[in-house]
Simulated scan of single mutants.
Amino acid sequence: MDHLLHLDRTLDELDRPCWTPPAADATHLMRKVHALRQVRLGEFGPADLRILISQQVALPYVLPLAVRLLLEEPLLDASFYGGDLLLAAVRAPAAAWALLPDLNTRLRTVITTLPETAVADLPRGGAEELARFVARAESLR
């Protein structure tokens, strides 16, 4: 299924069941995640995708959107630093990536072509996380 065909729909429409409203004492992050589930996929920005991926929300729908951006600009600064969206994506569970083998391959290819200097500029442990993602994907082949 091509999840990019649903850009005019929301996660609440696609990722059933719909979530109930957040609790009155919910954190700012949880209120934000709940609110994002009511936004059309085509309106998500890089920061929104980073949040949803980091919180492991509706990964079959948000990972393709993130990869689409990452293929053009792998070290995109979504919120905090260059590469934060990429690192959020590679931290997604292997089970989520197993549903998206073509995107997994394409992202792995992009990662392997990154200049060493760019990878070295990632926060501590970032280069290792990218290497683990590439190795994990190669072991599935």
Score class of each variant (00 low, 15 high):
Arg106Tyr: 05
Leu107Lys: 12
Asp2Arg: 08
Arg31Val: 12
Val110Gln: 12
Ala24Leu: 14
Leu41Pro: 04
Ala66Arg: 05
Arg50Pro: 13
Pro123Lys: 03
Pro64Gln: 02
Tyr81Phe: 15
Leu75Ser: 03
Arg136Lys: 10
Pro64Glu: 04
Met30Lys: 11
Arg16Cys: 02
Leu41Asn: 03
Pro74Ser: 14
Glu129Pro: 04
Leu99Cys: 14
Asn104Phe: 06
Gln55Cys: 13
Arg16Val: 07
Val90Gly: 12
Ala127Gln: 11
Ile53Thr: 11
Leu103Tyr: 15
Pro46Gln: 08
Leu130Thr: 01
Leu29Gln: 06
Ala24Met: 14
Leu107Val: 13
Thr109Ser: 14
Gly42Glu: 11
Leu7Glu: 15
Glu116His: 12
Asp15Pro: 00
Gly125Asn: 05
Leu69Asp: 12
Ala127Cys: 05
Trp19Glu: 10
Val57Ser: 04
Ser139Thr: 13
Val119Lys: 09
Arg37Ala: 02
Phe133Pro: 07
Glu116Gly: 15
Ala88Cys: 09
Leu14Gln: 00
Gln38Val: 03
Gln56Ala: 15
Ala95Glu: 15
Ala96Leu: 00
Val62Ile: 02
Leu5Ser: 09
Ser139Trp: 07
Pro74Phe: 13
Ile111Ser: 10
Leu65Asp: 04
Leu75Val: 03
Asp25Trp: 08
His6Lys: 13
Asp48Met: 09
Leu69Cys: 05
Leu140Ile: 04
Pro101Gly: 01
Leu114Cys: 06
Leu49His: 00
Lys32Gly: 07
Phe44Thr: 02
Met30Ala: 13
Gly83Val: 00
Glu138His: 09
Ala98Thr: 08
Ile51Asn: 10
Pro60Asp: 01
Pro60Phe: 02
Arg68Thr: 06
Leu114Ser: 00
Pro74Val: 07
Glu13His: 00
Val33Cys: 08
Asp84Pro: 01
Arg31Phe: 08
Asp25Gly: 05
Arg136Gln: 13
Ala23Cys: 00
Ala88Lys: 04
Gln56Glu: 15
Gln55Pro: 01
Pro101Phe: 00
Leu76His: 01
Glu116Gln: 14
Gly126Met: 09
Thr27Pro: 12
Glu43Arg: 15
Val62Met: 08
Leu87Lys: 01
Asp25Phe: 03
Leu75Gln: 11
Glu128Arg: 09
